[in-house]
């Protein structure tokens, strides 16, 4: 009976092969996170983060909805696709290059970016252009503290945000639904506004992949698609950048895309929204309820034309 295992090892104690094979993956992942020096390997805690006066007092949407109902077309165009496929996204090593019309272009590692400014908790409303909304307790820091690193030149008027393309981890890239890499943009004053943040976490923990790990833009007075996920490149420009959605449907998506109940999407109304978890729809607020803070950015502009 040479082939029989020693009697002192119960079959139940033998690691199944599938799990055994994943051991290496687990070790790589956990050491990767541990070596990054910021996140303890055992848990992905980042927060709680400094409370912010910009936070809303509205009840945050449950975590399972924030992480289970996403638009992240690189992982597929169904809302459930990102939660299902984004676990493969490689978020380390990660760096962001900041370039274009700046005095000194820079490439910053994610570890350095996380040390730039103290993390704050920003509980923001998020309004999707499709007519639904959430309340999300982001963990992040003002975008301005990242942009100031490179000293923009005087002729820099816009900031372009370019997001990651990982063909092997992103099944949606092959589908050509949109032009990759997904690109978004802001006017420089919008980007420097204190409400604009780079989020690196939510609910006090490291940002889940499907929400745009390891860092994403959050611009709460604009439709959600303006807030690019998994950002790798930031470029200062003099001319208004062409964004992915403007290329996909120029009649439907403008550069500004401020939340505006009076300017409908050509195909559906923007007057009301369904807050995830609620039964009745609620009225959509001008600038998503942030009019007091941002309306002056657009004074004198015809928001019907500059939609």
């Amino acid at each position: 009976m040479p082939n029989r295992p020693p009697a002192d090892i119960a079959p139940s104690e033998i690691t199944p092969r599938a799990l055994f094979n994943r051991r290496r993956e687990f070790l790589q992942l956990s050491t990767g996170i541990a070596l990054s020096g910021i996140i303890p390997a055992a848990e992905a805690k980042l927060g709680p983060g400094k409370p912010s006066p910009y936070s809303t007092t509205e009840t945050p949407t449950p975590l399972k909805h924030i992480t289970g109902y996403n638009n992240f077309y690189e992982f597929g165009s169904d809302k459930e696709d990102p939660a299902q496929y984004a676990h493969t996204l490689r978020t380390r090593p990660w760096s962001v290059s900041i370039e274009g019309l700046v005095k000194r272009p820079k490439t910053l590692g994610i570890e350095d970016i996380l040390r730039l400014a103290p993390l704050e908790e920003r509980i923001y409303r998020l309004r999707c252009v499709e007519g639904w909304s959430m309340v999300i307790p982001w963990l992040g820091f003002p975008l301005s503290s990242l942009l100031k690193q490179v000293e923009p030149l005087g002729n820099a008027k816009y900031v372009e945000f370019i997001t990651a393309v990982q063909e092997d981890t992103m099944p949606g890239i092959k589908s050509r639904v949109l032009d990759w890499p997904y690109t978004e943009g802001l006017r420089l004053d919008e980007a420097m506004h204190p409400l604009s943040i780079m989020a690196v976490g939510l609910y006090g923990e490291v940002l889940p992949n499907q929400n745009g790990a390891p860092l994403r833009l959050v611009v709460p007075w604009k439709y959600g698609f303006k807030s690019g996920k998994s950002i790798v490149r930031i470029r200062f420009t003099e001319l208004e950048p062409r964004t992915t959605w403007m290329n996909a449907a120029p009649r439907e998506y403008g550069f500004y895309s401020n939340v505006n109940p009076e300017v409908d999407h050509p195909r559906w109304s923007q007057g009301s929204e369904r807050r995830i978890g609620e039964f009745l729809k609620r009225k959509t607020l001008m600038f998503n309820g942030y009019a007091d803070q941002v309306a002056q950015l657009y004074s004198g502009m015809d928001l019907r034309k500059k939609f």
Partner: peptide, 13 residues
């Protein structure tokens, strides 16, 4: 699905 809450975050949609 509505009863058992298996229709995701936006069951009405």
């Amino acid at each position: 699905g509505v009863q058992a809450d298996t229709l995701g975050a936006n069951p009405i949609e």
